[in-house]
Amino acid sequence: MFFILKRNRLFLEKIKEFFDMCDSLMDNFQETIETYLIHGNNSDFEVHLSKAKKMEHNADSLLHTIENFLYEKSLLPESREDILRLFEKFDDIVDSSVHILRYLNTRNITIPSNIHDDVTEIIKVSRKAYEEVKQAINELFYKRKNLLSYVRTINDYESICDDIQAKIITTIFRSDIDKYDKILLSDVITIMAKLTDHCEDSADVIALINVKRAI
């Protein structure tokens, strides 16, 4: 039993390390979007993007370590599969943030100032949803209480994000900008809103894990 508890502690340390890396990546993402809204695709953005790519790579390496740990642990096969799926979904959130930055970089999109506040709001809500997912996963590995309240909050954030997305896309298509730009902008907003979709996917896995283990 002592051996199991020691291995659990090591495993939880690895998860913390992974979350810290993801936090840094998300901080960098928020900062980069703010910079992009003000200055567009300048050299600063390039620096932030390469930083994000490096962090994504590090996060992936940590995730592989966690996956290996899961195979060595005395987990039930079903739990192992569920946890692996959960981390894959969580990884989709951070991967998606890097994808948004790449998209902005390759398309060199100019975001009109009249939607800046809403774009910032989407990013903030996504970040809140991400934090809730992280808290829920932590809860799963510690006390397993209030899991469903986290799931509900994440779903609420996803709905808020959908509303903002619809609002921004409506604004874009009612504006006088070029049709080609309208499509590009609408695409980038849809990709940004996917952040909370990935959070919702993670929440679904958490809810399923909770239901499966309900006694």
Binding site: M1, I4, L5, N8, F11, L12, K73, S74, L75, L76, S79, I83, L140, F141, Y142, K143, R144, K145, I209, R213, I215
Partner: peptide
């Protein structure tokens, strides 16, 4: 007992298996 202990997924799996 399980509800009172509210074990996390790692410990509960280890306890169940043992």
């Amino acid at each position: 007992i399980c509800k009172k202990l509210a074990l996390n997924i790692l410990t509960s799996d280890a306890v169940l298996r043992t």
